[in-house]
Every structure is written in structure tokens, then in C-alpha cells.
């Protein structure tokens, strides 16, 4: 599907199927991060099942590992494994399709789940490219609640110290975490200034669920020299249906039959509208 905006909604449907069949999943963050992952995997990064062994391909670490169901939907669409296999096996006894990244599966580089690991690991990946004179770029996606982890800022410090302009981090700024509003739990509305103070180039993506805006931001990041870039992508948690949107209890929740019917209807309607945009 060449229309990435519509594809993101199709992948949301697959994500919902994974969660409903597996009876588990971090649905709210899955929905908010979908355009970020779609733009990265289908437009920005040269990562595919065919080039995983190529040392010069781009690198990606899913730091907000709990949005695994969305990541499964994207990796399946890329051809790393069949989506029906994920839907059938996710969270089931003995399955490799667990609730956080598992690098025994194709397409997944690093295990995560505990937060604040992705950015420092990506510093190492981006540093390797600098040491070797390689051109690949390194990407990571973090949650906004995740930014309370001190290790994020250790990584941020090193990324600017080593002038890693081949590193691009994305913050899925959906403003909700498991206990409620991020500003109530641990405020970081000044996170643009924080990243700038750490020597980063900061791009605010007004609508982080807008593929075009994300594309522009990623393209701008590629032109930045001498410093890493972070995209603060302002997203909507639960994006796709009013049933879930901006509701903290949907951090992880499995929709009941009635909710599911409404969510699916909403997702299909939005996909249809985008197809004919």
C-alpha cells in the first residue's frame, strides 16, 4: 500500500487483532506510535528481511518496548514473519511472540522492555558507524514517560559528546503514562529545552500522527551536522478511535466485544477517508 497514512490504519487493525487474540497488549501506546513506525519502516530506513545481514543498513531499537504489538504489525507487513502467525501465537504458552522485543525473532535487533535502554544502545550503534566510516543511520523510539529514566540522559549526553549526527531519536509524546497525565506523574513539558541543553537538535512535530509532518522532520534530521536529532512527536494515545483516545486506562487494555466493534468501525472509516484523500 503506497498510501502510508491509510497503511497506518490498516496496521492498527492488525495490532488490535493481535491484542484481542492474545488477550493482552499495550494498546494505547501501540496506537500513538503507529505513524512513527510506519514512516520509519516504509519510507526512512533501509531495513528489510533481505538486508538484515548487510552491515551498512540502517539500525533501529524499539526503546518503548511495550508497544510491541504495533511493532509486530509493522515487521509483519515488512515481511519478517506472517501476521497470522503473530495473531495466532502472541502471548500464548511457549510462544516467541512475547510482549516486548525478542531478538530471537527476525527483524528485531535488541531486547528491551525495561525502559531507558534504547537510546544508550543506539549511541553505541551510531558510534560504530563513525568509527568505521559507515553511512547508515540509527533510530530509536522512546515513550515520554520513559524520559524519567536517568539512563536516557546518560545516553543523550554521550550522543552529543560524540557528535552523533547519524543518530535520530523519536519521543512518542502522547502525554499519558500508566498512572495518568505525564505532567502529573513527572513533568517534562520543558523537554525541548532539556534536549537542547544536552546539545541536541530538537524538532517539534506538531502532529506526530501525521505521516507528512514526520517525513519532513526525518528529512530535516538528515541535514543536521555535528549533533544528534530528537523528534518530539506530539501524538494521541489510543489514536484511531474515540473509544481509546486520550484515555489513560487504555495504556494496556483488551477491548470487549462492543468496544472492539466500535474501534474496528472507526479505524476502517478513517482508513477509507485517507484512501480517498
Amino acid at each position: 500500500m503506497s498510501n502510508l497514512k491509510a497503511l497506518a490504519y490498516e496496521l492498527r487493525e492488525n495490532t488490535i487483532d493481535i491484542i484481542v487474540e492474545g488477550k493482552a497488549g499495550h494498546i494505547g501506546g501501540d496506537m500513538s506510535v503507529m505513524e512513527i513506525l510506519t514512516e520509519l519502516y516504509f519510507e526512512q530506513m533501509n531495513i528489510s528481511p533481505e538486508n538484515m545481514d548487510d552491515p551498512d543498513r540502517d539500525k533501529f531499537v524499539m526503546s518503548k518496548g511495550h508497544s510491541m504489538e504495533a511493532y509486530y504489525a509493522v515487521l509483519a507487513e515488512k515481511g519478517f514473519f506472517p501476521i497470522q502467525e503473530v495473531i495466532g501465537q502472541f502471548s500464548k504458552f511457549g510462544s516467541q511472540y512475547i510482549g516486548h522485543p525478542n531478538n530471537k525473532l527476525p527483524g528485531i535487533e535488541m531486547n528491551s522492555g525495561s525502559l531507558g535502554h534504547g537510546l544508550p544502545v543506539c549511541v553505541g550503534m551510531a558510534l560504530a558507524a563513525k568509527m568505521n566510516g559507515q553511512e547508515y543511520r540509527t533510530y530509536t523510539v522512546m515513550g515520554d514517560g520513559e524520559l524519567a529514566e536517568g539512563s536516557v540522559w546518560e545516553g543523550a549526553m554521550a550522543a552529543s559528546h560524540y557528535k552523533l549526527d547519524n543518530l535520530c531519536a523519536v519521543v512518542d509524546r502522547n502525554r499519558l503514562q500508566i498512572s495518568g497525565n505525564t505532567e502529573d506523574v513527572m513533568a517534562h513539558d520543558d523537554l525541548h529545552e532539556r534536549f537542547r541543553a544536552f546539545g541536541w537538535h530538537v524538532i517539534d512535530v506538531t502532529d506526530g500522527n501525521n505521516i507528512s509532518q514526520l517525513k519532513d522532520a526525518f528529512e530535516e534530521a538528515k541535514t543536521v551536522k555535528g549533533k544528534p536529532t530528537v523528534l518530539i512527536a506530539n501524538t494521541v494515545k489510543g489514536k484511531g478511535s474515540p473509544v481509546m483516545e486520550n484515555k489513560a486506562p487504555w495504556h494496556h487494555k483488551v477491548p470487549n466485544a462492543e468496544e472492539l466493534a466500535q474501534i474496528k468501525k472507526d479505524l476502517r472509516e478513517r482508513k477509507e477517508a485517507l484512501l480517498h484523500e
Binding site: K59, E109, V121, C122, G124, L127, A128, M131, E154, G155
Partner: peptide, 26 residues
């Protein structure tokens, strides 16, 4: 010097950066 990386007093970073380097063949 080109094969030495200083991370400062940040042991968590030390290990994560090492892991990222290793993943890319170092």
C-alpha cells in the same frame, strides 16, 4: 586512541554503548 571510548562516570551508559557497538560488529 581510535579504539578507545570514554563514557564518563556513567556505568549504565558504559554497558549499553558496549552492547550497541557489539551489535554492529565491534
Amino acid at each position: 586512541p581510535k579504539q578507545f571510548v570514554e563514557v564518563g562516570i556513567a556505568e549504565q551508559n558504559l554497558v549499553s554503548i558496549s552492547a550497541g557497538l557489539a551489535k554492529c560488529g565491534k
